[in-house]
Design a protein around this nucleic acid. Structure first.
Length: 847
RNA sequence: GCGGGCGUGGUGGAAUGGUAGACACGCCAGACUUAAAAUCUGUUGGGCGAAUGCCCGUGGGGGUUCAAGUCCCCCCGCCCGCACCA
């Protein structure tokens, strides 16, 4: 008997698929299309198990959809701009482009052996001028449609590396690379007007009914809509120009519970005060420093600085309240100023208790007596009726809000206001390895977009990273250019775009990846939207929100049809691949291949005891990684694919274990052995009954595997295939019947283990490629047995079971059930109180 | 604090309100073998029992129902996300 040799077989079938261009996607108006996309990888240089899981899932969907008749688009590309390339340039003295393209080549050669059904002719890399040139074209179009603007913004500035840092790159107030104290610096930056779309992006979430609820919630929270009132306090004692203080509140109903006003340390008024008051300055500085670390925020005590300024209550000329600068007010939200109502807001209460301010309850819960209701150390934020509030007394919270807004608007000192947390998207990066922003600064004409015929504005290759800062800033050839408007010498913009821009439209580019326009209408029309998008939940907010914005911007600029403004019809977020962690006696992490199993425990290769830690996401730092290349080398791609699809539901984390991988391999070998038996040894008895049993099992398997794939429960499809294999292995049917069954098996396992499926298929004489075979259909008649087993419950407890014909009537089933010896015994002569028969399901006798 | 999710054998996990534990791993036993590996067969939630059987069992407590892992209420624990958002 021949052993299945994946090393030989897998490349053979991959070559075969290539030859017939099995996965090439072409527009065919006569067929319905299906677009499957997995989030494209960053070319770090090596694929990891997370990639294997992600791309296998997508491949199962793509192969299945293709088999049921769809015209499938399943592309692959590289999210190739970004900081690691520059870090490598600085650390290893290689050019970012060389580093990146080498990594892409390496990863492609690791990915191809997986046998994914990808149309490689559509491969793209975002760092390729062919790609980012089109991105520049769209940037110019977006400028024309007023979707882009420049403004001053405060950024985290690393004075040593001379670059802007993202918030995630600031650790404890210091730059993550240089260790230098990060400065807050105002720079002119480019922004996309995503906030214009706040309401639309929020409303659109309701229609994304094939997205995980979790992701939809996260996006809603991120957009952060709140409705309230924005109004002016009249100030006393404030510097010139601050006669009014504008505040924002979502609780206008509590206006009579106000006891102070507070502003952010970054509020213009606070800044004005600090100019000639060192005490204010010191306090403000302290607040700003505190703002950087997260734990500081969590534990920070509410603190304030009394400015001596007062404000007048809008409904009572005689009511004056102090104005504080407070450390818990954020300039970035609302107006950066509030009124404090301690009774009904915990932060305000903490603050009021510390500074001994009045706490007046104005909302009284229904079960409380308004005359005795007081606030202790906890603010009351629930519902109730308004008290202590003159004309609002007795109203509900909602009615009081409406009334206050009405009166404020009538007085002309404010208006109802909807605020969003979502802010405009700053896309400027002072970095080399990104898409150059295609504009020119001209002394005469100002900021001018580059002419489209001059695109792409390519990154110059001859740059050095021996000095900190953006190499583009000191590259004369790049810097000096002609003004596109007046033709005089001008300076090119040296900011490059945030890499999130690159990934915000690649799904659209895949529909016409090599066109000389960003998209082609006919292709976008046919292929968009992405029917199934698959990726990690870590992109639940930024990438997916930016993509939703970008699709709208592309529609406005004529690059995508209206129907594609929500580009991802269905989203699936897969779990991570985890592995146990190991440490040696010195507390050093150990790789799984550095240890060996010795009666139940583990020791190092030289016999040291090993401490086994919890199973966590595979990561280099914990060394709990298994390299897909090693697995493919040892067992073949099908084994890796089978393993990551089995056991755990796709949305949950899966734990990689050596024994699990072994088990997957054994199963595939077993399939091959059974195939071998079918062609070489007819061990069956040839009875029609046995053949029928096997046929039924086939249809059962078709139904179960299909349901599993359709429902994104690949683990259940795998289980159904195991079950079918067990049945087939034990079957006494003749070789012809087994061959039929095994051909069905090959079709059903094709999406998961395509190479073995092809080998089995061709060995048994299936016609053509199983990859191109039509998916089998389950015959409903084959799913029901002639005789079914029905459990009998007595008072809800299972006591017996009976065999009944599949078309037995209720009355017949009742008679049979009451004839059961167990039922008769338990009834003990009595009449059943009730008899419930659920045909095909269960019988319950109530005594 | 807010939002979301989860809690089932030794383990990963199955179960349109209808036989809890499919399928897999692991363990144990047996067959084959000089032996091992591989393979095949069987057992495997707990308890009582010689046995037909019986009792208990899906984080805990209540409830709805002929019937609850599943639905409702309360509580406990774990995970993830966001967070001084006015």
């Amino acid at each position: 008997m021949s052993r299945y040799n994946a090393k030989v077989t897998e490349p053979k079938w991959q070559a075969e698929w290539d030859q017939v261009e099995a996965f090439k996607a072409e527009i065919d108006p006569s067929r319905e299309k299906y677009y499957v996309l997995e989030m494209f990888p960053y070319p770090s240089g090596r694929i990891h198990m997370g990639h294997v899981r992600n791309y296998t899932m997508g491949d199962v969907v793509a192969r299945y959809k293709s088999a049921v008749g769809y015209n499938v688009l399943h592309p692959m590309g590289w999210d190739a701009f970004g900081m690691p390339a520059e870090n490598a340039a600085m650390g290893k003295n290689v050019h970012p482009a060389d580093w990146t393209y080498q990594n892409i080549a390496d990863m492609r050669s690791q990915l191809k052996p997986m046998g994914l059904s990808i149309d490689w002719s559509r491969e793209l890399a975002t760092c390729d001028p062919e790609y980012y040139g089109q991105q520049q074209a769209m940037f110019i179009d977006m400028m024309a449609k007023d979707l882009v603007y420049r403004k001053n913004a405060v950024v985290n500035w690393d004075p040593v590396d001379m670059t802007v840092l993202a918030n995630e790159q600031v650790e404890g107030g210091r730059g993550w690379r240089s260790g230098a104290l990060v400065e807050r610096k105002e720079l002119t930056q480019w922004f996309f007007k995503i906030s214009d779309f706040s309401e639309e992006l929020l409303a659109g979430i309701d229609r994304l009914d094939q997205w995980p609820e979790k992701v939809r919630t996260m996006q809603r929270n991120w957009i952060g809509k709140s409705q309230g009132l924005q109004f002016n306090f009249k100030t006393t004692g404030a510097p010139k120009g601050f006669e009014a203080l504008e505040v924002y509140t979502t609780r206008p109903d509590t206006l009579f519970g106000a006891s102070f006003a507070a502003i952010s340390c970054d509020h213009p008024l606070a800044k004005s005060l600090e100019a000639n008051n060192p005490e204010v300055k010191a306090f403000n500085e302290e607040c700003r420093q505190l703002g950087t670390t997260e734990e500081a925020l969590e534990t920070a005590e509410k603190r304030g600085f009394d400015t001596g300024i007062t404000v007048t209550h809008p409904f009572n000329e005689a009511w004056e309240m102090p104005v504080y600068i407070a450390n818990f007010i954020l300039m970035g939200y609302g107006t950066g100023a509030i009124f404090g109502c301690p009774a009904h807001d915990q932060r305000d209460l903490d603050f009021a208790r510390k500074y001994d301010l009045v706490v007046t309850p104005v909302v009284c819960p229904a079960e409380q007596d308004p005359d005795t209701f007081t606030i202790g150390s906890e603010a009351y934020t629930g519902v109730g009726n308004i008290i202590n509030s003159r004309f609002l007394d007795g109203l509900s919270i909602d009615d009081a809000m409406t009334e206050v807004i009405k009166r404020i608007e009538a007085a002309g000192t404010g208006q109802a206001q909807t605020n969003y947390r979502l802010r405009d998207w700053g896309v400027s990066r002072q970095r080399y390895w990104g898409c150059p922003i295609p504009v020119v600064h001209c002394d005469a004409c100002g900021v001018v977009p580059e002419k489209k015929e001059n695109l792409p504005i390519e990154l110059p290759k001859d740059v050095t990273f021996d000095r900190p800062g953006n190499p583009l800033d000191r590259h004369e050839g790049f810097l000096n250019c002609e003004c596109p408007a007046c033709g005089r010498p001008a300076k090119r913009e040296t900011d490059t775009m945030d890499t999130f821009v690159d990934s915000s439209w690649y799904y659209a580019r895949f529909t016409a990846p090599h066109a000389d326009t960003p998209t082609v209408a006919a292709d976008a029309e046919y292929w968009m939207n992405v029917d199934q998008y698959i990726g990690g939940v870590e992109h639940a907010i930024l990438h997916l929100l930016y993509s939703r914005f970008f699709a709208r911007a592309m529609n406005i600029t004529g690059h995508l049809p209206e129907a594609a403004i929500e580009p991802f019809n269905a989203l699936f977020t897969q779990g991570m691949v985890c592995h146990e962690t190991y440490k040696d006696p010195d507390g050093q992490w150990l790789q799984p291949d550095e240890i060996k199993s010795v009666d139940g425990g583990f020791v190092t290769k030289d016999g040291q005891p090993v401490t086994v830690g919890p199973s966590i996401k595979m990561s280099k730092s914990k060394k709990n990684v298994v390299d897909p290349e090693d697995i493919i080398d040892q067992y073949g791609a099908d084994t890796a694919r089978w393993f990551v699809m089995s056991d755990s539901p796709p949305e949950r984390d899966v734990e990689w274990t050596a024994s699990g991988a072994e088990a997957a391999w054994k199963h595939l070998q077993r399939i091959w052995r059974l195939t071998d038996e079918i062609i070489n040894a007819d061990t069956g008895d040839g009875s029609a009954d046995e053949a029928m049993l096997l046929k039924r099992a086939s249809h059962r398997a078709i139904a179960d595997v299909t349901a599993g794939v359709e429902g994104f429960a690949f683990n259940k499809s795998v289980a159904a295939l195991y079950q079918f294999t067990n049945t087939l292995a034990k079957s006494k049917a003749d070789a012809a019947a087994k061959r039929e069954a095994m051909l069905v098996m090959a079709q059903l396992m094709q999406p998961m283990v395509p190479h073995l499926a092809e080998e089995v298929w061709s060995t048994l004489g299936g016609s053509g490629l199983v990859t191109q075979a039509l998916w089998p259909k389950a015959d409903p008649a084959m799913l029901v047995d002639d005789v079914i087993t029905m459990p009998i419950q007595v008072n809800g407890k299972r006591r017996d079971e009976i065999q009944v014909a599949k078309d037995a009537t209720k009355a017949e089933i009742e008679t049979l059930a009451l004839a059961s010896a167990t039922v008769i015994r338990l009834l003990d002569g009595a009449e059943p109180k009730k008899l419930i028969v659920v045909p095909g399901r269960i019988i319950n006798v109530v005594i």
